[in-house]
Amino acid sequence: MERTTIDLWVGIFAAAGMAAILGLAMKVGNLTSSSVGETYTVTAAFENIGGLKARAPVKSAGVVVGRVDGIRFDSKTFEAVVTLKLDKRYPFPTDTEANIYTAGLLGEQYVGLEIAGLEDSNLKEGDKIKRTQDAVVLEKMISQFLYSKAAETPTDASK
C-alpha cells in the first residue's frame, strides 16, 4: 500500500483513539465540572460519621456545593474530623449546620448543609462548623424505637 494512505489511516486511528480518551474523560468521567474551580476548606467534627467516605458530595438544598476532602480521627476529643472542600461561589454563614444524610434507603451517605441564617458573617478558609448532627445508625434507631414501644405498651393495656 502507498505510504500516504498508510499515514492517513494511522492519523485517523491516532486521532480517534485520542478522542476516545478525551470522550471518556469528559462524558463518562465528567472531568469538566467535578474538580476544576476554586474551593475553600472548612472542617466539621462528628461523633459518628456512619459510612461517610472521602469524595462524597456536600449538598445544600439538594445542590452539590462541594466534596468531602478527607476524614480523620481526633484522638483527643474522640471525634471524627471531616474536611469539606466547598465551591468559592457559594458562601455559607457561620451558623450553618452540617448533617450526615443517606441518599435513598440504603444509598451512599453525604453531608447536608442547613442554614439557620441568624449570623451575617460567612465561613472562611480553615473555619470549623460548630453545629453538627451525626449519621443515623439504623441499629440505634431500631433499638430506640423498640424501647419506646416497650415503654408505652403497659399504659395502653391499663386503659
Binding site: 486511528f13 491516532a14 480517534a16 485520542m18 476516545a20 480518551i21 470522550g23 471518556l24 463518562v28
Partner: peptide, 16 residues
C-alpha cells in the same frame, strides 16, 4: 505499545 492504549480507549468508548 502506542496502539494498545488507543485501542483500549476506543473499546471502552464504543462499549459505553
Amino acid at each position: 505499545v502506542i496502539s494498545m492504549p488507543l485501542l483500549a480507549a476506543l473499546f471502552s468508548m464504543v462499549g459505553v
